[in-house]
Amino acid sequence: MTNGRWDPTDDAAVVLEMAAGSEAALEKLYDRHATAIFAAVYRMTSDRGTAEEVVQETFLTLWNRAETFDPMTGSLAAWLHAIARNRAIDRLRAIGRRPSLVGLGALSAPDEDPMQALERLAVRGSVVAGSTPADDPETAMTAAATRDALRHAMADMPEDERQVILLAYQEDLSQTEIAERLGWPLGTVKTRTRRALHRLRSALGSEFAPLADDAALPVPAGEDR
């Protein structure tokens, strides 16, 4: 997860481990950076399928060309984001679309100062287009905290609840479609959806929390609460 809980300078050591053949090191780097890369590409392309493909290609490039990463010229996060951004632009050009205008923050690595990012892009000759102003620091911090809270809530959620809420919000499936996909009774899907939603709303803070707590929700037969 890209949430600042690791020392970015440690990335270089992990890349060395990976270059020596450690798949565990590759997984560690994926865990650290994939979420942020996916989010950045999704913001550029508004297409989850493209974002998935770009993440795969980016980490394949990392694996194949680890030796070309030079920690003296920039962080691994910046390197990976540059690869991902180029791949995303290639795909958008291939289908005749322009990249969405995004703020500089979307082009920066999580550990990169916006001015550093601008310098990096300018040196490479990248086109940096204008867009609506980025959020002010306080708003950006709040948004980051919200994302972090939601991701923790998702991680702590029982698997059956996580499944239904992801199908609902990520794949835009209706309750009936989720029931068909998972082979669960519709009532079970509804209950699990509501419980998952309660958890996520509670994670967002008191101003978003539901009035009723989980105790009000029925528990499907055979399930522990």
Partner: peptide
């Protein structure tokens, strides 16, 4: 937020 989260199986597919 969830739209910006990669699917859970993307890691295994990438590996």
């Amino acid at each position: 937020d969830l739209h910006e989260m990669p699917p859970a199986d993307l890691k295994s597919r990438t590996l």
